[in-house]
Design a protein around this nucleic acid. Sequence first.
RNA 1: GGAGAGGUGUCCGAGUGGUCGAAGGUGCCAGACUCGAAAUCUGGUGUGGCGCAAGUCACCGUGGGUUCGAAUCCCACCCUCUCCGCCA
Length: 454
Amino acid sequence: MLDIKLLRDEPERIAQNLRDRGTRVFTDIADTPASDWAAQTVARLVSLDGTYRDLLSAAEDLRREQNENSAATKAVSKLPKDQQAAARTPLIEAGRALRDKEKQLREDTDAAQRARDEAWALVPNLTHPDTPRGHRDADHAELHQWGQRRDFAAEGFVPKDHLELAEALDLVDFASGAKVVGQKFYYLVNEAVLLDMALQRHALEIARKHGFKLHTTPDLARVEILDGLGFNPRGESTQVYSIANSDLCLVGTAEITLGGMLADEILEAERLPLLVAGLSHCFRTEAGSHGQESRGLYRVHQFTKVELFAFTAGDLEISEAMHARLRDIEEEIFQSLGLPYRVIDIASGDLGGPAYRKFDLEAWMPGRGDWGEITSTSNCTDYQARRLKIRYRPEPVDGKKQKPRMVHMLNGTAVATSRALVAVLENYQQADGSVVIPEVLRPLCGFERIGPRA
RNA sequence: GGAGAGGUGUCCGAGUGGUCGAAGGUGCCAGACUCGAAAUCUGGUGUGGCGCAAGUCACCGUGGGUUCGAAUCCCACCCUCUCCGCCA
């Protein structure tokens, strides 16, 4: 959620950002060439806010009257005994009337606030000036590439995709997953189990080396925490599994459980930047994505991930530097695995609500003959912090205690093991169908190669 | 799951339905004392909304209710602790 003051002070900036991102807050505002839907959207937001503020100030006036009336009623006890009853009766009657009016007005005010906040929460974060504007994949900007892609033609064989490899080597069992849970669930089998854990362990080690405090996190979280982080568990095309008869959801990422840890807290400035890493399972419904890049492990309902998370002071220079640092760590991890990748600066239309800027790492996946997203890091600035109320107290200036400010919150994937497995299997496959283990993982796996099977 | 106790500000902790945004302590900031520090003393110090300001409104786990008036009484829920049961 953005600071509502932005709506009052710089409405045109909000409108332009809605255009850049193509975010529709109100479904009933038409998108025709003749109409400026973004300006109309902002106008309606301003009107919702105005309605709320008018009601609020009326309600507060009424409450002051109530307070004055109560004080007067109490003062009656100082009068001589024989005058008290006569003085008290009209005050109590006036108080009753005030109470009824106040109750009505309060309900109206609450409703107006809900209406405003519901809409305002759909307004996305501001967008980094360097973020490419656009809505199509082609609008993303490639920042750089790393690593050498293998020339399979020169090696004399056609690369298989990870699913073919994994099935031939008996590393995954999708059939049992489908039987026991449903489509897109799977069992890892044999060496894949150890490889999966080795990837986790490797990523955790690097996170720790960079000063991240390690956590395993809950795999469920309350709806209000999800809301605070900008996920929409109740939205129509939600990616989130909800637990029936509860206010809990399965988390789609440890970003939720790590980001929610400090909700409602005011941190001492010296605790910043606060770096945490979390190992969790991730559950995603992948609603609406059937058929899209859905083969094998690439898009599944459950996987395991090591997530990096940072809370910084609320200055853009600081959080942007941290964002670069998270990206560097992600690169370090995939360099250490020897996987060719490129870094993408995600276009405005694809950022999602909370992100101010987002970099993705895409590994080369020979089986697809294309790049595939393996990690992602976002600077969400204060967008999540505002709703979660995560603040910090800046150092005193001239001996004067400073007001709390919102922290900036950033997240990044250290490793998502499902996608990393895809990349490792496809890039390290051999002509004989076996898969060589990346060197750094060998001590963690306890073997150097999977297969070939006899 | 059963029984009991409890959730108050940075923290600890008091709080008879009105004088309570809240005693006291602690922490923090400034000043005094000191060569300096410690100790001591004095003053200041919650968060948010509206307002140029004076000010005003809200917040004592959350949400309802009673009342002219609720931190205080009632109900529900959440959480913590103790004991019992069950269990990896």
